[in-house]
Amino acid sequence: MEGAENIPGTGPVILAGNHLTFIDSMILPVVCDRAVYFIGKDEYVTGKGLKGRLMAWFFTGVGMIPVDRDGGRGGVAALMTGKRVLDDGQMFGIYPEGTRSPDGRLYRGRTGIARLTLMTGAPVVPFAMIGTDKLQPGGKGLPRPGRVTVRFGEAMEFSRYDGMDRDRYVLRAVTDSVMTEVMRLSGQEYVDMYATKAKAA
């Protein structure tokens, strides 16, 4: 772990980083001294039988908050969940790309991250997962042994944009500045396209 001193010890914080594989959300809470909450698909905690109960126990234990992200209301539900966590003075983890990278490159960030920081005043600490895709290629199967680096950058604050959380140009500028830091920390090639569109193609 590198740059842990950049995470504020108290108060609301947004951790925003790249997303390479399924186990990113398992590693992030392990390397942080404070509890990290993040959203995940509600299907992770609604499974049946022993396997379903074990998955629900694990994901809620590592700080996942289940949200139904399908349909038009999914993004709003995710945003409001993050706001509640931050209003309580906690840390909220988010992957601005919105989904795992299909090829290891860094894709365009969605502006929910910008709305969260502008609505709550919480600083954004960018981070980079490096090597998790080698442990679990394609996000499937059991992880293999290997070395992973989690690198945190300096906290970013956007108080100069107070009251502008509905200005789409401001939202894009804030999001892009966060993604630029994630790119610098990760060393990934940047693609100015949404990862979901790349997967569909």
Rank of each mutant, 00 (worst) to 15 (best):
R100D: 05
F59K: 07
F158H: 12
R53T: 09
A128H: 02
E2K: 13
R147M: 09
D176A: 08
P137K: 00
P8D: 12
V170I: 14
V124Y: 09
P137E: 00
G153P: 11
G112K: 05
V182M: 06
P145W: 09
E154C: 08
R147P: 03
I7Q: 04
F127M: 13
R184V: 03
V191P: 07
L79N: 05
R69I: 05
P96E: 13
C32I: 11
P102E: 11
R184A: 13
Q136V: 04
R147D: 12
S25Y: 09
T81V: 07
D167W: 08
K48H: 13
G63P: 06
A4N: 09
M55R: 15
A128N: 02
Q90P: 05
R100W: 01
I23T: 03
R110S: 09
I94M: 15
V76A: 14
I65F: 10
M179C: 01
T111P: 06
E189Y: 11
R166T: 15
A77R: 15
T132V: 00
K199P: 05
R115G: 02
F152M: 07
A155N: 05
G3E: 04
I14V: 03
N18G: 06
D162E: 14
K41V: 02
G71A: 05
Q188Y: 09
V45A: 03
D70N: 10
D70G: 10
D24Q: 04
S25K: 05
D192T: 14
L79K: 06
V30P: 00
G141Y: 01
G141K: 04
D133A: 14
P102T: 12
G187W: 07
D87M: 13
R105V: 10
A4Y: 10
M119S: 12
D133E: 15
M80T: 12
R73G: 12
Y161R: 11
D162A: 15
M179W: 07
F58E: 11
M91W: 04
V31K: 05
D167P: 09
N6Q: 09
M55I: 09
I27V: 14
R144G: 08
R172L: 09
G75Q: 03
C32F: 03
F127I: 07
V174P: 03
R110N: 10
R160S: 14
P145G: 07
G93H: 07
M129G: 01
I14Q: 00
V182T: 06
E189C: 10
V67N: 00
F58N: 12
P8H: 02
D103P: 00
W57Y: 13
G146K: 02
R53G: 08
A198V: 15
V148L: 09
G47C: 04
R34W: 02
G163C: 10
G82P: 04
A201L: 14
D176K: 08
P102C: 08
E5H: 12
G47D: 07
P126A: 01
A78V: 10
P143M: 04
K83L: 10
G47K: 07
E157H: 13
G11V: 03
D133H: 14
D167G: 11
V36D: 02
G40L: 00
R151A: 14
G121T: 06
G17M: 01
T81K: 00
L20N: 01
G17Y: 00
P29Q: 11
G71L: 05
A128T: 01
A35M: 13
G63E: 01
